[in-house]
Amino acid sequence: MDLFKLKITMGFMLKLVVFLFVSLSFSAQDSLALISGKSILGELSYQDHQFLYFNKKINENKIKLIRYPLRLVYSLTDQNSKTEVFYHKNPTNGNYLSQDQMKLFVLGEQDALRQFKRGYHFLLGLGFGLTASILDTYEFSNVACKGYFNDSPSIISIATPFLSSVIIGFPNKKVRKAYVSKGHYLESKFYRTGFNRVKNYRKTSSAFIGGLSGVFSVLVVTFVHRKNNPCP
C-alpha cells in the first residue's frame, strides 16, 4: 500500500515538474511590439537592414517564421526583459513622433486591443441590419402579397451596412479609465490617440459586419420565402 502511494506521489511530482518546465519555457519568449499595437510572442531568428525574422508559435507543434519590415516594428523585448527599440523619428518616412511619443501611442493601441470588445457594436449593427432589411422587404403596395419578406430588396438593404458603420460606429475621443492599464497614461494625447485609433476601427468594422450579417440573413429568408410562397 505504501509503495502504491509512493508511486502515485512520484507520478504527481513528475507531472508537476514537467508542467512547470513547459510553462517556464512558454513564458520565456521574446516579445515583439508592432506600431499597430499588436504584441507577438515567439523567438527572434535573425534580422537584416530591412526585415526582422521572427519565429511565431502557432500551436504546440507548429512554429512559423514570419518576416516583419523594421518600419512596422516598435521594439523587441527578449527573454531577459532587455528591450531594443527599432522605431526612430523620421518625417520623410512618415514617422513624425519621437520614440517616447510612439511608445505611448503603442501602449494606447495595446490597451484598446486588450480591453475594448467588439461584441456590443456587432450586436447593435446586427439589430440595425435586421430591422432595416425586414422593413425593406415588406410588401406594402400589393394587397395580395402584403407582408414581410414578400418584396425585393432595394438600395436600402445595400446601404444599411454602411449606414450602420457610420451611425453605430461613429468615432469619439473618450477613453474610459477602466480600459487604461495605468491611470497617468490618460494625461498623454499620444496614448489617447493610439487608443482611439484601435477603438474607433473596432467600432466601425464591428458595426459594419453586424449590419451586413443582419441584411444577409433577411435576404436569405426572403429568397426562401418567396420561392416557397410565390405571389399569385
Score class of each variant (00 low, 15 high):
residue 205 S to T: 03
residue 124 L to P: 05
residue 205 S to I: 15
residue 193 T to W: 01
residue 4 F to A: 02
residue 68 Y to C: 11
residue 207 A to N: 02
residue 38 K to W: 01
residue 142 N to Q: 05
residue 206 S to I: 05
residue 219 L to I: 10
residue 176 R to K: 09
residue 178 A to V: 14
residue 131 T to Y: 10
residue 122 F to L: 15
residue 54 F to H: 08
residue 22 V to K: 11
residue 186 L to V: 02
residue 44 L to P: 06
residue 67 R to E: 13
residue 27 S to L: 15
residue 41 L to I: 06
residue 16 L to K: 14
residue 2 D to G: 07
residue 176 R to S: 08
residue 169 G to K: 02
residue 179 Y to M: 02
residue 47 Q to G: 00
residue 44 L to W: 10
residue 29 Q to F: 03
residue 84 E to L: 08
residue 150 N to A: 11
residue 53 Y to K: 00
residue 73 V to E: 14
residue 173 K to T: 09
residue 61 N to W: 02
residue 108 G to E: 06
residue 68 Y to I: 11
residue 184 H to L: 05
residue 193 T to I: 00
residue 93 N to K: 15
residue 57 K to R: 15
residue 192 R to I: 10
residue 113 L to P: 01
residue 218 V to W: 00
residue 74 Y to D: 11
residue 54 F to W: 08
residue 21 F to H: 07
residue 35 I to G: 00
residue 22 V to T: 12
residue 70 L to E: 14
residue 227 K to R: 07
residue 37 G to R: 01
residue 53 Y to I: 03
residue 87 Y to P: 02
residue 218 V to M: 04
residue 14 L to I: 05
residue 33 A to D: 08
residue 77 T to V: 08
residue 74 Y to M: 07
residue 91 P to Y: 03
residue 43 E to T: 13
residue 8 I to F: 03
residue 91 P to F: 05
residue 195 F to W: 06
residue 50 Q to F: 12
residue 161 P to W: 10
residue 96 Y to N: 10
residue 100 D to K: 00
residue 40 I to M: 03
residue 214 G to Y: 01
residue 157 S to Y: 05
residue 40 I to L: 15
residue 135 L to K: 01
residue 119 G to V: 12
residue 93 N to T: 12
residue 70 L to C: 11
residue 44 L to H: 11
residue 102 M to A: 04
residue 28 A to I: 14
